[in-house]
Each structure stands twice: as structure tokens, then as C-alpha cells.
């Protein structure tokens, strides 16, 4: 009986991690950008092009990992638009992000029609079969691919890097004050360019994991606002990459729960159930703001564009 319970917990943990993984990558990328003083609503568009490019390459090459690579690159390429508008033309960041989002939606609806209905094989599960004796770990590993552990590792690495290295310090100081950073001989524009590009790569990777490894299909606007939710979750996580992980896992848990309820054939409206992630993000934003009242952790330069 106890092993059954452990197995059930394992299955739930696997489902939670799997649905949280795309969000973890996008939110990590967004939090890096915001730490340098850049908000990027284009993450939604970058995620979409990543999802489509990843899916397209994975179906053509039969290789999920090549797909993930292509997705990351596509997200990085689209992020160049945000860099050009915000850094070169000094455009409003929020407007620029929305422009990138619209371009991403348009491009993927245009090109994606050819890929609707196609199938793709995901990354291999960590444990092909067996392992029933392992209680929790057996079912967990059977339903987990490399993407999940990779997301956890990425969160740990980014958190360590931004807090403990010299280059991480440069990124943080750029977000607090680009002027002071510049007077210390570091070019904040270059750092922001790196941050937007890395954010684009991570958003694209998250999108590719969503289409190739999680849903294993392509559908128009399949990210359903995950890129926008990520922008909100960065605030909930207090701009700390380490906290991105639990916040996204909580989110993944609610999504997995909704999915399980729907699979159980619950009679409740599936459309109302689908509002759960959006209602949840607003509720956690309220909770985070009630707790903090003043967003003291917000990077100082970000306050100018984003209050």
C-alpha cells in the first residue's frame, strides 16, 4: 500500500515537472532580462517561434534534441528584434515586446499551417521500463525526460552565476543603474543585448520543449500566454532565479491537476477549467504584492519602464 502511495506521488511529481519545464526556461530567461533592466513581453512570440522551429526540425530529422536546439536558436533570432528596437532605437520596452509578440504570432500561424496534425517523438524517458522496486523513483523516472532535470540544473546554475560571479555582478548592477555601470567602464548596452539574447534562447528552448517534449503536437498559438505568464511570475519570484523554480513548479502542479481532472471526465466546463492558469497568476501576483507591499527587490532601472 505504501509503495502504491509512493508511486502515485512519483507520477504526480513527474507530471508537475513536465508541465512546469517549458515555463521554467522562459521565466528564467525573462528574469535574467529584468535583472538587467529589460522587460520583454516578446517572450510569448519567442516561445512560439521556438515551439514551431523545434517541432519542424524534430519532425524532419526525427531527433528531438536537434529540435530543441533549433527552437532555442529561433527564439534567440526573434529576440534580436527586441534588442534592435529597445537598445538601438530606444523604443518603449513594453510596446517593442508586443511588436515582437505580434510578429511571432503572425509568423508561426503563417508557417505553422503545414505542421498541424503532424506527430513527433519526444526525448527518451530517463528510465525506459522496470524500476517498480524503486517505489517513488521508478514511476517518476519512467515519465520524466532529460528536459526536466535540465531545467532544475539551469535554475540552480543561473542563480549561482548571477549571485556569485563577477559577470553576474555586472548584470545585476546594469539593472540597478546603467549609468553607474557605465561609469565603471562596463557597457550596459552590451550586457542588456546579451541578456535579451539569452532570454530569447531560453524562451525558444522552453517553446520547443512544449511542442516537442510535452504536447508533441503543433497548434496555432499553442503557448496560450505562457510567455506573458512568465513575465508575471518573475515578479512573484522577486527577480530571484532560485525562486523561479518553486513558483513555476507550483504553476505546473495546478496545470497537471487541471489535466488530471479533465482526464477523469469531470462534468465541469473544460473552458472554465482552462482559465485556471490565468486566474492563478493573478492570484499569486496579488499574494506576492500583499506580502511585499513595496517591491524593494525590483531592479532600480526597471522601475522607470515598469511600475
Amino acid at each position: 500500500m505504501e509503495t502504491d502511495l509512493m508511486a502515485l506521488v512519483g507520477v504526480w511529481c513527474a507530471a508537475t515537472l513536465r508541465s512546469a519545464t517549458p515555463l521554467i526556461f522562459v521565466t528564467l530567461g525573462e528574469s535574467l532580462g529584468q535583472r538587467t533592466g529589460i522587460i520583454n513581453l516578446g517572450a510569448e512570440g519567442e516561445m512560439l517561434v521556438g515551439a514551431l522551429a523545434g517541432f519542424a526540425v524534430a519532425t524532419q530529422t526525427d531527433s528531438a534534441s536537434l529540435g530543441l536546439l533549433a527552437g532555442a536558436l529561433a527564439g534567440g533570432v526573434l529576440s534580436l528584434v527586441h534588442s534592435a528596437l529597445v537598445l538601438a532605437a530606444r523604443a518603449n520596452q513594453i510596446a517593442s515586446g508586443l511588436a515582437v509578440m505580434i510578429i511571432g504570432i503572425g509568423l508561426t500561424s503563417y508557417i505553422g499551417r503545414a505542421f498541424v496534425g503532424k506527430k513527433v517523438s519526444s526525448l527518451d524517458n530517463l528510465l525506459p521500463s522496470g524500476g517498480e522496486a524503486l517505489a517513488f523513483f521508478g514511476p517518476f523516472l519512467q515519465q520524466t525526460t532529460l528536459a526536466g532535470p535540465l531545467a532544475i540544473a539551469a535554475a540552480a546554475f543561473i542563480s549561482w552565476w548571477i549571485n556569485n560571479t563577477r559577470s553576474g555582478l555586472h548584470w545585476r548592477s546594469t539593472g540597478e543603474s546603467a549609468e553607474v555601470t557605465l561609469s565603471n567602464g562596463i557597457n550596459p548596452i552590451r550586457i542588456r543585448f546579451y541578456a535579451i539574447t539569452v532570454g530569447g534562447l531560453l524562451a525558444g528552448l522552453g517553446g520547443a520543449i512544449l511542442s516537442v517534449d510535452y504536447t508533441q503536437t503543433w497548434a496555432q498559438e499553442m503557448t496560450k500566454g505562457r510567455g506573458l505568464i512568465a513575465v508575471g511570475l518573475v515578479i512573484v519570484a522577486g527577480w530571484r532565479p532560485a525562486l523561479v523554480l518553486p513558483v513555476c513548479l507550483f504553476f505546473g502542479f495546478t496545470e497537471a491537476a487541471v489535466f488530471k481532472l479533465q482526464a477523469m471526465g469531470i462534468t465541469f466546463s473544460s473552458h472554465l477549467l482552462s482559465t485556471m492558469p490565468y486566474v492563478t497568476v493573478i492570484l499569486v501576483l496579488i499574494f506576492a504584492h500583499l506580502r511585499a507591499r513595496k517591491s524593494s527587490q525590483m531592479p532600480n532601472d526597471l522601475k522607470a519602464v515598469f511600475q
Binding site: A88, A89, A91, A95, V100, I102, I103, I105, G106, L107
Partner: peptide, 14 residues
């Protein structure tokens, strides 16, 4: 036309 809207936005910002 969605792509063109996005490009119009980007152009008007740039």
C-alpha cells in the same frame, strides 16, 4: 496581415 501589423509596429517604433 498579422505579420504586417507586427512589422508596422516595429517600424513605427524604430
Amino acid at each position: 496581415s498579422t505579420i504586417l501589423q507586427g512589422l508596422l509596429f516595429a517600424t513605427a517604433l524604430a
